[in-house]
Design a protein around this nucleic acid. Structure first.
Lengths: 150, 150
DNA sequence: CTGCAACCTCAAGTTAGATTGAGGTCAAGT
DNA sequence: ACTTGACCTCAATCTAACTTGAGGTTGCAG
């Protein structure tokens, strides 16, 4: 409870885990995927910037919105290199995921309409049912039968 | 092009694959998971009922709605044993997945509202942001950090 | 009756997103 | 100096949803 862990304001991995709710192993995994890039102490221990808390929070939020780590990475790369992101930087990224969210909702709503048509006719038949339409491939989420739906 | 493959109206696996757009291996995989239960010829080849086309179509549709095979299995088990499902049977199941779809859309809409709050404040901070709220664990879809979000 | 496509089984590989474990090091308190 | 907890790496394991491949059989057309 004593040592204030100031030391240039860098956080060890356990601290970051505590503050984000992520597990230590998950954070290391994200480093592997280059979603965070901590510096190292002379003793080879990771040290994170305070702004990485927000970075990891963003990852958690984006995942809940259904984004894959790859997409999240792409968003995060829009952040400025070299300087700590400002509220404005995060704001821009938030707007971008708001767009993704809108599209996902719209997709599901289209599915719902089609399903309603199907409930009406009771069909569920590949040859007639609108629900099975390879062209609007909404299957961006979840594994699914890869060959067929991707 | 000659042999009519009537023979009691049973379909070999390749036919079923052709008609559903699934791969042969995927259908075998689904049999493994007991999502379809074909009978066998004396030579140990699978033979499917015509109604299995619809059954597999349902699987495809439900997957696009974001359902996992396990859930889909649970739905399919509501179908009558022993007799070929009627349009009414499928209708009931469609209603049930319509409910699931509604819930998913509602969840995403709640996320959107929260995100809007966040865009307003530009925070994305775990300690203040509503978006990070462990209690409404919407993370029913996609992998995500299991320990944290499930 | 032969050829060949379509079928069979079973084991291993794939991707995403992590977790778990073994074996070892670092650093802070006493 | 010692102990202990936090940290390190690296390899293996897990789930979902399949695919791929090896090696072998079936069944229908000619």
């Amino acid at each position: 409870m004593t040592s204030r862990l100031r030391a240039n304001d860098l956080l060890p991995i356990g601290e970051l885990a505590r503050r984000t709710g992520l597990s230590v192993s998950a954070i290391r995994f994200y480093e592997d995927k280059r979603l965070v890039e901590p510096i190292r102490t002379s003793g080879n221990q990771r040290r994170f910037l305070r702004s990485d808390i927000r970075r990891l929070s963003f990852i958690l939020i984006a995942q809940r919105l259904g984004m894959a780590l790859g997409e999240i990475d792409r968003e995060l790369r829009k952040l400025p290199q070299g300087r700590t992101p400002t509220a404005g930087d995060w704001h821009a990224i938030s707007l971008s995921i708001r767009g993704a969210l809108d599209r996902r909702i719209a997709e599901l709503e289209r599915m719902r309409e089609k399903l309603d048509g199907c409930i009406g006719c009771g069909c569920l038949s590949l040859s007639h049912c609108q629900l099975y339409n390879k062209d609007d491939h909404l299957a961006a989420e979840g594994p699914g039968p890869r060959k067929v739906l991707s």
